[in-house]
């Protein structure tokens, strides 16, 4: 028998595995309730010096987490290096901005379109691009992100370089008002969607699609030899990632009320990628941890903020060299059984 190493992850994992459904249900409820209650927290240790903690909770924290979970399906699960994730975010934001101005639809009715257009973009880009591998794909997606931005700058119909202003927020729902002043409803909305997305991604991860993605990440040729329709599953990963990005973009636009192409630069793609890599590619909890840390640290340590891209650049190099798999790398909980012969 192998000696058990003492670490929190294993201790919690063992406990979770032996827990009864009721215990699990209670734990889940408590954790989720805690997250919903975070905006009420008023603690100088946690508070951020310049922006109020409530609004930091919405942006960057939970919005980064949402995007990171979406990008993780692409990069972490399937091993497709997407450097243009911001394009999907931009498409979602512009969908909400343009459609709310041109149609009578409200935010909630536009959301499916925001996701749908982002998915469509994923399909259109993915269909040709996903035939390529690794580095080539990285460059193509990077180009795609930039191209979307250049097109936005040069297209007067969607505001050109000046962008779009006076974007309406979401209409009230379940008694929640979405005003510019109060970030909390946006946080709760995004958190709710994040939970739904996590639920969906976990569900897929434990079944055939999850295995197909992992197999592709591990060895694409062999996955294909083992009957995995690699192109189809890579496309799905891309489309799902795109949908989540589009969703995040629409929420973002509805909160900040005016958008310009310059909001959607490569830096944001890299930022989200850094969350994924830093947290632990392929592990959804690691990725969320990464998003929370990388979103929070610069807000807390305001002096870092100006230098944060320098910091991230350095972090990526150092992290890759020390822990190529991130803070909380994906790890299957291995079980050892004695052979009964």
């Amino acid at each position: 028998m192998k000696a058990k190493a003492f670490n929190l992850r294993d201790i919690f994992g063992d406990w979770w595995e032996s827990a009864t459904p009721i215990q699990r249900g209670i734990t889940r409820t408590v954790v989720i309730a805690t997250f919903y209650a975070l905006p009420f927290l008023n603690n100088p240790v946690i508070d951020t010096p310049e922006t109020s903690f409530k609004s930091v909770l919405f942006y960057p924290l939970v919005l980064f987490a949402l995007m990171a979970v979406g990008l993780n399906v692409v990069v972490g699960k399937s091993g497709i290096l997407d450097l243009g994730y911001v394009a999907f975010f931009a498409i979602g934001a512009y969908t909400h901005a343009v459609m709310s101005a041109r149609t009578s639809l409200n935010f909630w009715e536009i959301l499916p379109f925001a996701m749908g257009f982002a998915m469509l973009a994923g399909l259109i880009l993915g269909l040709p691009a996903l035939r390529l591998r690794g580095d080539y794909l990285a460059i193509i997606t990077l180009g795609f992100g930039e191209i979307i931005r250049i097109i936005a700058i040069n297209t007067e119909a969607i505001g050109g370089a000046a962008g779009i202003t006076d974007i309406p927020g979401p209409t009230p729902i379940f008694g929640f008002e979405f005003s510019v002043m109060d970030p909390r409803p946006y946080y709760w909305l995004t958190l709710t969607l994040l939970i739904l997305v996590i639920w969906g991604v976990l569900r897929l991860s434990h079944r055939k699609p999850g295995r197909a993605w992992e197999a592709i990440r591990e060895d694409e040729d062999v996955a294909e030899f083992m009957g995995v329709a690699t192109l189809k599953y890579k496309l799905w990963a891309f489309i799902i990632g795109g949908a989540v990005g589009g969703l995040a973009g629409a929420i973002y636009a509805s909160k900040i009320r005016s958008i310009q192409p310059e909001l959607f630069t490569l830096n944001l793609s890299i930022m989200i990628l850094a969350c994924v890599v830093f947290g632990g590619m392929g592990n959804i909890w690691g990725v969320i941890l990464g998003a929370v840390l990388l979103g929070y640290i610069p807000e807390k340590l305001r002096f870092l903020s100006d230098y944060r891209i320098i910091f991230f650049g350095l972090l990526m190099v150092v992290m890759m060299n020390i822990r190529p798999n991130g803070l909380m790398p994906r790890k299957k909980r291995e079980k050892f059984q004695e052979k009964i012969s």
Binding site: R211, A212, E214, E218, V222, A223, M226, G227, V228, K332
Partner: peptide, 17 residues
């Protein structure tokens, strides 16, 4: 050429899928 980061069971299940 196994899928190194997957369990033995998952390796086989991937093909069965």
């Amino acid at each position: 050429r196994l899928f190194g980061d997957m369990t033995a069971l998952e390796n086989v299940a991937t093909a069965a899928d």
